[in-house]
């Protein structure tokens, strides 16, 4: 292979990856790797931790320190890794089910502590690995194999959740604008604290088919149409904001990072 970026950061012998044709996960993953490349970080200093699900398989393909953990627990493992070795840049790759359902509590508390971990959620609105069950981010009314008559659950706004819980950098982007994902991951890694990046991606195989969303290119175009940049959004009159998904940098605040606080305690003795 002659693709420099892929060659440099992937375990290329393990490609092609397991993701379905048209799955957006590969796009998000490349965007993350591009951010690491742009920042010029040393591969040995990066630890990527994932949970269980389609997106969490990402760690297997990356040539960093990689830990593929149990369902929902990536942030709990990552907390142990970061606290035990603060020199590592810890990046968590997770999915909407992994992070918002079974791992929801870990997300809230990692954000509350403001521990220096960058979390990237690959949100495809479905449980793909198990064959298309509705997730906490499946839009109300949409179908999954466990919502054959349409999902009656309200869906989660993960960025609002992360912000409320205490994350100090929160942003959203889509696989339509993969360069924005890269920019946001760079900002997330640079932020000394808990950073939360929601990357909206596509699952043509399950979510798309079940909800008649068309093929992968069509679904990527739908992401473009559904979303609006944060600056443009706030210029819209209230009545025109309804139903639009806001992308861009949504929140940023300064707050002391968890390990810095702990180190202050250690140094006080």
């Amino acid at each position: 292979m002659g693709n420099n970026l892929i060659e440099k950061y992937y375990r290329t012998e393990r490609l092609p990856h397991i993701w379905c044709p048209g799955c957006g996960n590969g796009i998000v993953l490349r965007a993350i790797v591009k951010a690491i490349d742009n920042l010029g970080l040393n591969k040995d200093d990066i630890c990527v931790v994932s949970g269980i699900g389609c997106s969490s398989r990402a760690t297997g393909y990356l040539d960093f320190n990689t830990v593929h953990t149990t369902h929902g627990r990536a942030l709990a493992f990552a907390t142990g890794i970061k606290l035990a070795n603060p020199n590592l840049h810890v990046i968590v790759i997770t999915g909407d089910g992994d992070c918002a359902a079974i791992g929801g509590n870990h997300l809230i508390h990692a954000a509350r502590r403001n521990i220096d971990i960058t979390t990237v959620v690959f949100n495809n609105n479905i449980y793909g690995m198990t064959g298309g069950q509705y997730s906490p981010t499946t839009p109300t009314g949409d179908k999954g194999t466990t919502a054959p008559y349409g999902n009656i659950d309200p869906n989660f706004d993960l960025c609002e959740l992360a912000k409320s819980a205490g994350a100090t950098y929160v942003s959203r982007s889509t696989v339509y604008g993969a360069n924005m994902i890269t920019k946001q991951v760079e900002e997330g890694i640079k932020n000394k604290g808990f950073s939360f990046i929601e990357a909206l991606t596509i699952c043509p195989t399950y979510y798309g088919r079940k909800n008649k969303k068309g093929d992968a290119p069509e679904m990527i175009n739908q992401l473009k149409e559904m979303t609006i940049n944060v600056d443009a959004y706030y210029k819209l009159p209230q009545e025109k904001r309804e139903g639009r998904i806001v992308i861009g940098e949504l929140y940023r605040v300064q707050r002391e990072e968890y390990i810095e606080k702990y180190n202050r305690l250690i140094n006080s003795f």
Binding site: M1, G2, N3, P16, W19, P21, G22, I27, R30, Y176
Partner: peptide, 14 residues
């Protein structure tokens, strides 16, 4: 290249 999920098409390289 940017949107290829499979790293199957790219510009440049070796």
């Amino acid at each position: 290249e940017l949107r290829c999920p499979d790293y199957a098409i790219y510009l440049g390289g070796k």
